[in-house]
Computed example of a mutant assay.
Amino acid sequence: MLPERRGDLLILTATLLASAGWLFSKEAITALPPAGFVGWRFLLAALILLPFCQRRLRATSPANLLKTAAIGLVMTLNLIFWIQAVAHSEGIGEGAFIMSLAMLMVPPLTWLLFRERPGRPFWLALPIAVSGLFLLTSGNGLSLSLGQLLFLLASLSLALYFSLNSRFARRVDPMALTCVQLGVTGIMHLIYSALFEQWPAQVPGHVWGWFAASVLLATSLRFFCQSAGQKYSHVANAALIMMLEPVWTVLISLFWYQEPMPPQKVLGCVLILLALLSFRSRPLYEWYRNRRAMRMVR
């Protein structure tokens, strides 16, 4: 198998695991406190990654480690909104599409924080995304449900994390960066859980199974597949595959929770997906054109 094909398959596996992670999380918090679940999930995932990045962590300066941990606090905020949104939503498919809008929230945040004006693809995709979001969330009229509002806040905080992390990630090894940020997120959630949540006296055995799947499959194995896949898969191809995560999540929610998806919501999802594709259209077109040129040379 060609290395690029292997990379694409690994990225596809990562998106499937990420989608399954929505199901694992929602099932786990039926008995576990949400923040406590996220805390142990991410802390254990960080400990699993630690043996593979000890040398890289030692090679990172204390100043960069401190900045890495600070960005991990933004990830903590994002996960607080996200897990609360999952807890207050009947399904997960709608939330996955709302969360996917984080990609379109990055340009205006970057403009606000770093004075980098968004390019033309963003302005073309914006009205399509807004229309899709309106159709997706207008089931309650013009008001948003609590779950929808929390998903929007989670999407905004995720965009903020992307904006900050993309400017800093090049200074630190990716695995070391992820390990530190997962650890910070886990510790902060456990502190939050200790202050504001109460753990049940007994937790059913099957819930621990969902918890284990979240740690081992949806976090650790997913990160490994994504990191390994990005070494071989073209960045534009990887971005296109990763856009499929909300699609897989909707299919899982339809099968597992029988989440209602009337035509209006389906159209909203399609418009959001089209907005993301149009936003990435130029990089994808350039990749296709370069690939076609290489084939013609061969």
Rank of each mutant, 00 (worst) to 15 (best):
L43D: 08
A46G: 10
I48D: 03
L49F: 13
L49E: 02
L49W: 08
L50I: 08
L50A: 08
R56I: 00
R56Q: 15
R56L: 07
L57D: 04
A59I: 03
T60N: 09
T60C: 14
P62A: 08
A63S: 12
N64Q: 12
T68H: 04
A69R: 09
A69L: 10
A70G: 04
I71N: 03
I71F: 11
G72Y: 07
L73E: 08
V74Q: 10
M75V: 02
T76N: 05
T76R: 01
N78I: 00
N78D: 09
N78A: 12
I80S: 11
I80Y: 12
Q84L: 10
Q84H: 09
A87Y: 13
H88V: 03
H88S: 13
S89A: 14
S89C: 09
I92D: 04
I92K: 01
I92Q: 02
E94K: 15
G95M: 00
F97M: 13
I98Q: 04
A102H: 07
A102I: 00
A102L: 00
M103R: 01
M103E: 10
L104T: 08
M105W: 14
P107I: 05
P107A: 03
P108V: 11
W111Y: 07
L113H: 05
F114Q: 07
R115W: 07
R117K: 14
P118N: 06
R120A: 13
F122T: 06
L126H: 03
I128A: 06
A129N: 10
S131V: 01
G132N: 08
L133P: 11
L135D: 13
L136K: 09
L136T: 11
S138D: 14
S138I: 07
G139E: 15
L146M: 12
Q148T: 05
Q148N: 11
L149R: 10
L150E: 15
F151K: 04
L152M: 13
L153P: 07
L153D: 10
L153M: 15
L160I: 06
Y161P: 01
F162S: 11
R170N: 06
R171K: 12
V172W: 03
D173M: 05
P174W: 08
M175E: 08
L177K: 10
C179Q: 15
C179F: 04
C179D: 06
V180Y: 10
Q181P: 03
L182I: 04
L182T: 04
V184N: 06
V184F: 07
T185G: 02
G186Y: 12
I187M: 11
I187C: 06
M188C: 14
H189R: 03
L190F: 08
